[in-house]
């Protein structure tokens, strides 16, 4: 019984992480410009991988490997948003203009190939 609940919890976490990755990748493909795409990538990276790793840590239980995976999650939660922030900031400071809804309507462009061409 406990084993079944354990396995079920692990499955749930890993599938939730994979779903996160799926939605993030879909967002990456559908979003219109650099800023919105980096939203998708960063969340995917931190939360999707975080959930999968959490599932694996619970699968291993409280031995060395499990604790090391938890440390890995902590590292991911610190480093991934920082990397996303650094990328977005570099774009912002070099003057890349974000896409807005008004732009898209005025230029008659569909989301997906506005801006970000150079």
């Amino acid at each position: 019984m406990i084993d079944a609940a354990h396995a079920l919890l692990v499955c749930f976490l890993v599938i939730a992480g994979a779903a996160f990755f799926f939605i993030g990748t879909l967002g990456l493909l559908r979003f219109p410009d650099f800023y919105t795409r980096i939203h998708a990538v960063t969340k995917c990276d931190a939360l999707g991988a975080g959930l999968v790793l959490l599932g694996l840590a619970i699968w291993r239980g409280p031995d060395g490997e499990g604790v090391r995976i938890l440390a890995l999650i902590a590292l991911l939660l610190i480093s991934s948003p920082t990397a996303g922030h650094a990328l977005a900031r570099a774009a912002f400071r070099t003057g890349l203009k974000p896409w807005t809804r008004n732009d898209g309507e005025r230029d008659g462009e569909i989301p997906g190939d506005a801006s970000e061409r150079d």
């Binding site: 610190i78 480093s79 920082t82 922030h85 650094a86």
Partner: peptide, 10 residues
């Protein structure tokens, strides 16, 4: 451009 305070701290 100086590095971001977030990146610097982390």
């Amino acid at each position: 451009v100086p590095p971001s305070p977030v990146v610097d701290y982390v």
